[in-house]
Design a protein around this nucleic acid. Structure first.
Lengths: 220, 220
DNA sequence: AGAAACTTATGTCAATCGACCAATCTTTGG
DNA sequence: CCAAAGATTGGTCGATTGACATAAGTTTCT
């Protein structure tokens, strides 16, 4: 996942070389850290386990990221980037129709929640207590992400085309409804629901659109 | 919170007695543990911090609960009991009207999510990965709780009186929409929303009812 | 009063944690 | 070809973890 081939350096395909190059190791460490942070939270995550899963040594985390905190930030930079890309891809070509724009945003959100449940899990870990990391998250990413959704939702409500939800509670209501099924996938599986099933995903996304945007005004 | 006065033993109001009686210490430890488990997850919770917050020593956890795992179970027994009580109180007197019954269930759910955000937080911690605790949770509580909601929702959908959501994804959608605002209260506060504000709670509960049950068929 | 049951306090145990230092190895650039 | 820079490795540090054994204190019952 993420760029498998490195552009800079491309350090010659030597046989059994030890040095994999900075970018490769950084990517591998971030990939492993995302899983570890999502599973155990920040404090519960072990830098030794992260390094082992990435095929590296613990000291390499200090070398490439200096600290556990910095590694965590780079993990969130990557995942938030993926979220923005998913929403951008979904809303592409719907610049004119406000309703289609919001519908696409919802579907993009659900799509990433299903594909990257780690983001929801990490957010749920961090947003529960006031911490330096939560403040960083808000300043750097969360605040910026909320703005366009707010704008679009406001326009839609003026047209009477959306559910009666104030923009203050909209954010957590929508995110919660969209992500808990995937964040809590093991629990869902115990209940006989498989969140990895594309059919489940489809019904879930459709349900959310119907929930927040109603049965549809003109299209469909 | 919870019975401040103990019925059994009532060990005479002696001056500075050390022994507080089994029930009192157990209650204090459970109260403190709920907060600690919600804030740090199971592995991240420290039995020493729990004991200190309860004005007791770590060894007393072993004495009264034997193990950290058992203490955790007693915490969830208590909170699930509170949840059932909240829903039972809300649905009381609505045995005949299916729509009013579901509406009351939703309001009861939101009410407890707001009053006891620790339950949502702990559930989000545990439901994220397959563990012995999650299995116990499902067998002992979660499975039982889902049944009546499923039944009532099914009846409502047959009457065409509910949003088009299958009962498989309903559970996590509703719980997520109801609890994330309070579970992630610190994040909400950064966004300028105070989940402790009764007005916010009212608007949130109303929004959820409108979302899942529509604008109302006959009443209101 | 005295024994038995109940409750609390003290201290120890191996295991694990993040951070850090110093030595070694690999690759690059002159 | 060799030195400098980049990257990896091994080991150590104090601090913290849950569980446990043991001893001391308190309450209750006879």
């Amino acid at each position: 996942m993420s760029t498998p081939v490195v552009d800079p350096a491309t350090p010659a395909p030597g046989r059994t070389r030890r040095n994999r190059g900075s970018e490769v190791v950084r990517d591998a460490l971030i990939d492993a850290a995302i899983v570890e942070f999502a599973a155990n939270g920040f404090d519960g995550a072990s830098t030794r386990r992260i390094a082992e899963a990435a095929g590296a040594h613990q000291s390499q985390i200090k070398y490439h990221f200096d600290t556990k905190n910095e590694l965590w930030k780079r993990c969130l930079d990557r995942m938030i980037g993926e979220l923005e890309a998913a929403i951008a891809a979904a809303t592409d070509g719907h610049r004119d129709d406000p309703r289609a724009l919001v519908e696409a945003s919802i579907r993009g959100l659900v799509e990433l929640a299903a594909r990257r449940p780690e983001l929801s899990r990490i957010m749920m870990h961090e947003a529960t207590s006031d911490s330096e990391r939560l403040a960083w998250l808000f300043e750097t990413h969360t605040g910026r992400l909320r703005a366009p959704l707010d704008r679009r939702w406001g326009r839609l409500r003026e047209r009477g085309d959306a559910a009666p939800i104030g923009s203050d509670v909209l954010y957590h209501t929508l995110i919660g409804a969209a992500s808990l099924l995937y964040a809590n996938a093991p629990e869902a599986r115990l209940m006989g629901v498989d969140p990895a099933d594309p059919a489940v995903f489809e019904r879930h996304a459709d349900a959310l659109v119907a929930l927040f945007l109603g049965p549809g005004s003109d299209d469909r």
